[in-house]
Nucleic acid binder design. Structure first.
Length: 878
RNA sequence: GGGAGCUUAGCUCAGCUGGUUCAGAGCACCUGCCUUACAAGCAGGGGGUCACAGGUUCGAACCCUGUAGCUCCCACCA
């Protein structure tokens, strides 16, 4: 078999992914085994894979693959989210490109276009996940707007309405003037920026006096219905009972007094526009003010404004300032720093707007979700997020769930001609309800369904339940199907901290409400992928590499390793392509280790040399301790540490040490054969290493697993059992360290003396070494021609003493240098000894410390003493 | 404005119950090697006042207080 020097990942990726699928390794059905379940955070159906998905799904795949190898029934449910606002915006934009205006279409026509778009592009992101190696059970793929899931949304709406959690109310909402819909508080992001603060004077009615207010939004002056000052502000005490005239529209409005006003800000006088500001709205309610809505839903000035009708709010702002100035109302303009809310979806400035919306009352329903995170039943990883979570849940506000869109689940509320409404699944059902309540007959045409759809998160909060059994919300949890019973609660959820409240908290709420149980046990919160300069990767900055390009360049395995190398849970990930390079290099290293192994010729008659026997023993012990460490990292979700431990086990311990030890010598340009025992042991080790590596690098490990032996189709590394920690004698590792130290010392001498690795040296050992068994290995690794034993140190040799053994290499090294080195070492050891002695002499320490600790300290003391003696002896020899 | 967290090597981060297995890892860097698995490699090396100042302790990267800087979350004074 001819193998290239460099590993080419492409062939393996294409072949094995298909092979895994064909053989059903990703599929999962309930059985007697322990389930391990993960539901994917459904990506936006119209989205394309970005680095965030990449990180997220790599982590999930690592967890799922390891669980599968641990013998669990691993089930990873994929799917997509209909993402109402984002998708609708995309479809609207697309239609506009075609010259079609959304407003010219009926709801049905629009939805037809939207579904077309979904069918055409909706699958892309899932196809991209396959390139990454994601081992999802694709037969279970779900979409939040598919029929069954939409029905479950409606069921839940009706149920919550019946329970009194859902209500309809007029509130100040965040209005997106581009999408023409309300958005939730969580969908508004605040941007700090410089704004102009305009000082405008209002004439006091019946006087020539003026009252100056300050505002950043002068266009809302047209909707002013009061001016408010602080009751204890001496400057305005005389205005009690007075009225002022709103400029331009010349409306007379009262001066009101409220402690809400900050005397220090601006002039201490606040204009009140109840229709366009949350706080003003509250003021308006309190003081029973009129509310004048001067804006149309699309952000242009409304008829109620009287002036500038139809003009965009920002254009109006410019114009009104000019006009105010012309009329002498503008006092001055200041630049101030303030925060302005923007829509996360459409990036336009959010307009507070009074409107009738549907809400979920959150206070009661969210109680178990708070409690069970605080008590640790649902664990957040890292747990630093608990505080934020707690804070948010304690102050949770009602959730505005209606959206003025078409793409989504339509609200199951029905109105009659008088504006009465009922909540019902179908029109027929609605009619029945109306007839019972109003005691008259209705026909379908009398009723109109609510035009709005529900917030996307109102469907995705059901995700961990609905992907298994969408009917359970109607049937009740007692009648849950087999899948749901088996897979719920799921185990781990991997997602970004940004959607902790949007989604995670709400899933926990829904979980307790409908299943009486948590939706998942652990929430692994990933960091944000940033570029080298620490900027968030985003499309608009253009600083995000295309993950598929990276896979093309470094292989899926390489990119996976690159992503995981630097991403402890919850930490931002400063992404750098060179990390993928490191991942690719690692693939290549493994590939070449395999090439070495595959090139061995085996001689069955050959006895196993002692050095190889020891090497195998040593590596197995090393493997055991490394595996224990790796397992521990996994249970604590420290994936980058688990990867690093695996990486070092393979690269350092296996390749750099073990393989060098057992590698056959060359004689006359031909490699010596290896004995069967060593070959078999090495093959077995290689196989174990591939297993431990598989969750991180699925493709190359599967590829090599099949190179190592002929396998049946059922024998795949993806389902191979995770290695066990065997009981082995670990004392060899410690003894071996002596040999390693000797080798390093000799290498050092070579380096210092500029002796080529090719030049063979002689080693003379001057004591009856109990670790004689390492001689063969030392000889090999340090490039020695022989190891001899002698009672006397040869004249020409400088030596080093390690533990009880003395090894001398007959090389001349400057004795002065050596003296210095030894002196330093001596000093260090003496310092160490002193500190140990001091500790043991300390009464408090002896009194308080555990007996084991004192034993340990005593052992340290003895070790240090003998080491000092040895160094002193060596020094006197020089 | 309120809250949480962070500050350890050039970079990204580990560091558990306070104790010379604690000052670490990976990458980057420097030196020498195209040696027969691998230059996508091998061997070796340098590099830190653990943010700063106090305190507690026999002993502090670790505990306490203060200061500075950074990050995130919540609120939104127009």
């Amino acid at each position: 078999m001819e193998l290239n020097k460099t590993y080419d990942p492409k062939a393996a990726e294409n072949h094995w992914y298909k092979w895994w699928m064909e053989n059903g390794f990703f599929r999962s059905v309930p059985d007697g085994r322990e389930p391990y379940t993960v539901v994917i955070p459904p990506p936006n159906v119209t989205g394309v894979l970005h680095m965030g998905h990449m990180l997220n799904n790599t982590i999930q795949d690592v967890l799922v693959r390891r669980a599968r190898m641990l013998g669990k029934n691993a089930c990873w449910v994929p799917g997509t989210d209909h993402a109402s606002i984002a998708t609708e915006a995309k479809v609207v934009a697309l239609l506009r490109e075609k010259g079609i205006d959304k407003r010219s279409l009926s709801r049905e026509e629009f939805l037809k276009y939207a579904w077309e778009w979904k069918e055409k592009y909706g699958g892309i992101i899932l196809e991209q996940l396959k390139k990454l190696g994601a081992s999802c059970d694709w037969d279970r793929t779900r979409f939040t707007m598919e029929e069954e899931l939409s029905e479950s949304v409606v069921d839940v709406f009706i149920d919550l309405y019946k329970k009194g959690y859902i209500y309809r109310g007029t509130r100040m909402v965040n209005w997106d003037v581009a999408a023409l819909t309300a958005v939730s508080d969580e969908e508004v992001f605040m941007k700090e920026g410089m704004s102009k603060l305009f000082y405008v004077k209002y004439q006091i009615e019946g006087s020539n006096e003026f009252l100056t207010i300050a505002t950043t939004r002068p266009e809302t002056i047209l909707g002013d219905t009061a001016v408010c000052v602080h009751p204890e502000d001496p400057r305005y005490a005389h205005l009690k009972g007075k009225r002022v005239v709103v400029p331009l529209v010349n409306r007379s409005v009262p001066v009101i007094f409220d402690e809400y006003v900050d005397k220090e800000f601006g002039t201490g006088a606040l204009k009140v526009t109840p229709a366009h500001d949350k706080n003003d709205y509250e003021l308006g309610k309190k003081h029973k003010l009129e509310s004048i809505d001067v804006l149309n839903p699309n952000g242009t000035m409304s008829n109620a404004a009287q002036l500038y009708i139809g003009l965009d709010r920002f254009a109006c702002r410019k114009q009104i300032v000019i006009d105010l100035e012309a009329k002498g109302h503008l006092v001055k303009v200041e630049e101030i720093k303030n925060n302005v809310g923007y829509s996360e979806r459409t990036n336009v400035v959010i307009e507070p707007r009074l409107s009738m919306q549907w809400y979920v009352a959150m206070k009661e329903i969210s109680k178990p979700a708070l409690e069970n995170v605080v008590n640790g039943k649902v664990q957040l990883i890292p747990d630093k997020f608990i505080n934020t979570y707690k804070y948010w849940m304690e102050g949770v506000h009602d959730w505005c769930i209606s959206r003025q869109l078409w793409w989504g689940q339509r609200i199951p509320a029905w109105y009659d001609k008088d504006g009465n409404f009922v909540v019902a699944k179908t029109a027929e059902e609605a009619i029945k309800q109306f007839q019972t309540v109003h005691r008259k007959s209705y026909i379908v045409n009398d009723l109109k369904q609510d035009e709005d759809v529900v917030d996307t998160w109102f469907s995705s909060w059901l995700w961990p339940i609905s992907v298994f059994d969408p009917k359970v919300f109607a049937n009740g949890k007692e009648k849950a199907n087999a899948d749901l019973k088996y897979y719920y609660p799921t185990n781990d959820l991997v997602t970004a901290p940004e959607i902790l409240f949007f989604w995670v908290a709400r899933m926990i709420i829904a979980g307790y409400e409908y299943m009486g149980d948590k939706p998942f046990s652990n929430v692994y919160l990933t960091g944000i992928v940033r570029d080298k300069q620490g900027r968030k990767m985003s499309k608009s900055l253009g600083n995000s590499p295309d993950p598929l390009d990276l896979i093309e360049k470094y292989g899926a395995d390489g990119v996976r390793v690159g992503m995981l190398l630097c991403s402890p849970a919850g930490n931002d990930l400063p992404f750098d392509e060179s990390l993928c390079e490191q991942g690719r290099n690692f693939s290549n290293k493994i590939w070449n280790a395999f090439r070495l192994l595959s090139g061995f010729t085996v001689d069955k008659n050959l006895a196993q040399p002692d050095s190889a026997k020891i090497a195998v023993e040593w590596f197995n012990a090393k493997f055991n301790s490394a595996l224990a460490e790796i397992n521990d990292h996994y249970t604590k979700f420290r994936l980058s540490d688990a990867l690093m431990a695996t990486y070092k086990l393979i690269w350092d311990d296996f390749c750099s040490w073990y393989l060098e030890m057992i590698k056959p010598d060359f004689v006359d340009g031909k490699a010596n054969p290896v004995d069967q025992k060593t070959f078999d042991a090495t093959t077995l080790i290689f196989e174990k290493l591939m297993k431990v590596l598989h969750p991180f690098m699925p493709f190359i490990t599967e590829e090599l697993y099949h190179h190592l032996a002929e396998r049946k189709t059922t024998d795949a590394i993806i389902v191979a059992p995770w290695p066990e920690i065997s009981k082995a004698d670990n004392s060899i590792v410690e003894k071996f360290n002596i040999a390693i130290e000797v080798v390093m010392n000799i290498r050092n001498i070579r380096n210092q003396r500029n002796i080529s690795p090719k030049e063979k040296l002689e080693l003379v050992v001057t004591s009856a070494a109990s670790e004689k068994m390492f001689d063969g290995i030392i000889q090999k690794l340090a490039g020695l021609s022989s190891v001899a034993y002698s009672k006397e140190k040869p004249e020409s040799a400088i030596g080093f003493i390690i533990k009880s053994n003395e090894y001398f290499v007959p090389i001349h090294v400057d004795p002065e240098e050596e003296k210095k080195r030894l002196a330093k070492e001596l000093e260090y050891n003496k310092g160490f000894l002193a500190s140990v002695q001091k500790k043991l002499a300390n009464e408090k320490f002896v009194a308080n410390a555990k007996p084991e600790l004192i034993e340990m300290e005593k052992k340290k003391q003895a070790d240090a003493e003998s080491k000092i003696k040895a160094i002193e002896a060596q020094l006197s020899n020089l």
